[in-house]
Design a protein around this nucleic acid. Structure first.
Lengths: 144, 144
DNA sequence: CTATTAAACGATAATAATTATCGTTTGTCA
DNA sequence: TGACAAACGATAATTATTATCGTTTAATAG
């Protein structure tokens, strides 16, 4: 990692109130060099090549800390467990980033102009599932 | 459940090649009368009021069968486990419903006109996360 | 530069959600 | 109505994640 990147890492740790540990730095570097949507196990495997004694729990803890402090994001803001969609009407989801609640909004009430068919890259678009991230009415009140 | 609804249930079972069992019918009825995004445990609790001997495993199996046969949907098509978002650019996700792969597409390449601010209902929209559901190029080839 | 102390670490036990197994029961259909 | 596959219930097993706790390390005051 370049001196510039090390500085960047130390600054983000300071901003988040975290100690700049060796493990944390390697996890950060590894993430920076990965692509897509790695799982904790995948990150762990990569970090292990540089720190064989690293613990999986340390990887989990640091991933959560990076996510909490906004250094990285989580792919999904949905419940991590199975949920059944009861509403059969075309609709999207209002996801409150504060209380994690998810409610429905009719597709037409949201009124996004979506296009189906082939996208550049060859992906065939058949349906759009939109998560509107923000604050529900209740959490806005509490934030006052 | 009305005679009409019983008929509907038996027809969907036949279409899906499933036996019309008592447990399956009650799970179906319960789902029809729920709202939002119930968890398997919540469904189980409701079904248990009518069939005290029901097994949680039976609820899980039937939820999956209903989802596979398209009778109900799953709320989230994401990985059920933690994934880190590496891409810091505004982007959305192409979710292949066949192989479950998720890839990124730049927000501007997708070009959805999104509006921030208050929605009817009071929800404050801050960010849009779009899942484009469909078939990736590879799975389209295989489907030929 | 060293002592103090909170933060972080590693190992691993515990938990939660889900799935697999398997012997018994039930729906389907001849 | 009998045969057989499908489904059921009980529960063991698995997977992902989190909690615990004794040890190590980074931050920082002197």
């Amino acid at each position: 990692m370049s001196a510039q990147e090390i500085k960047e890492f130390r600054e983000l740790c300071e901003r988040a109130g975290l100690a700049a540990t060796h493990q944390r730095q390697v996890i950060y570097e590894v993430l920076k060099n990965m692509h897509g949507h790695p799982s904790p196990e995948e990150v762990y495997a990569r970090v292990k090549r540089r720190i064989p004694s690293i613990s999986l729990a340390t990887v989990y803890k640091n991933l959560h800390l990076f996510i909490e402090s906004g250094v990285f994001r989580e792919v999904s803001l949905h419940h991590g467990s199975l949920r059944v969609e009861i509403n059969h009407k075309p609709h999207h989801h209002l996801v409150c980033t504060s209380c994690k609640s998810i409610s429905d909004i009719d597709a037409e009430a949201l009124g996004l102009a979506t296009q189906y068919g082939k996208l550049p890259g060859g992906f065939l678009a058949q349906r759009f599932a939109v998560d509107v991230l923000g604050l529900c009415a209740d959490c806005q009140k509490k934030a006052d």
